[in-house]
Design a protein around this nucleic acid. Sequence first.
DNA 1: AGTGCGATTGACT
DNA 2: GTCAATCGCACTA
Length: 218
Amino acid sequence: MRDLRALRRDELPTDTVALARFLLGTIVVRDGLGQRLAGRIVETEAYPPGDPASHAFRRRTARNAAMFLPLGHAYVYLAYGTALMLNVASETEDVGAAVLVRALHPLAGLPQMATHRGLERLRDLTRGPGRLAQAMRIDRTLDGIDLMASAGPLWLGTDGGVPEQIGTTVRIGITKAADRPLRFIVPGDPFVSGPTALNRAADLALRLGAPKAEAGLP
DNA sequence: AGTGCGATTGACT
DNA sequence: GTCAATCGCACTA
């Protein structure tokens, strides 16, 4: 990892899909545990305004309130009673939308992550939304925090790294609007999630884009 | 107040 | 490849 710096809110694209693409290559940093944990985002999903699959589709509730916070805030929730999910709020304040962080390529604090996970194969450390949250010790207490605050326990940074390619597929594990191409991955990265069969099906819909032009970088 | 159901994971056939 | 665990939340009454 080259020199790490915090991202500024004005660098983030407001649009949910643009943000989902932009976040690939950026770094999630977990501080306050003694040892810094960090991982590069290699997989995201967009849940834009008006999306039937989005938690914010119907209305604002206690659970999804963080999706309505300004751009760059964390939305953390429990899925299936077992797995915690980290999202980044998108669009403008009072608009419910977010980007789900589905996989990280671990960069720092790997031994601690392994402890949090209960000793697993390296490849399973942060491959999948529930796994990465467990590895980074992300819980509901981090729901609603500002990810642009690099003095806080969880924040977003960059080392200037941008993926060479971005793959686009359908989203995983949803039933509504299941055909929309709103999942974005760094093709070939071993930490991208999804069962083999799903990856194969997803590969059929795979399209490659030029990340620098579409990531909204200055 | 009761009920059904996930933006998943891990164990097992 | 199949399948149960697990619980907060949304929806019905």
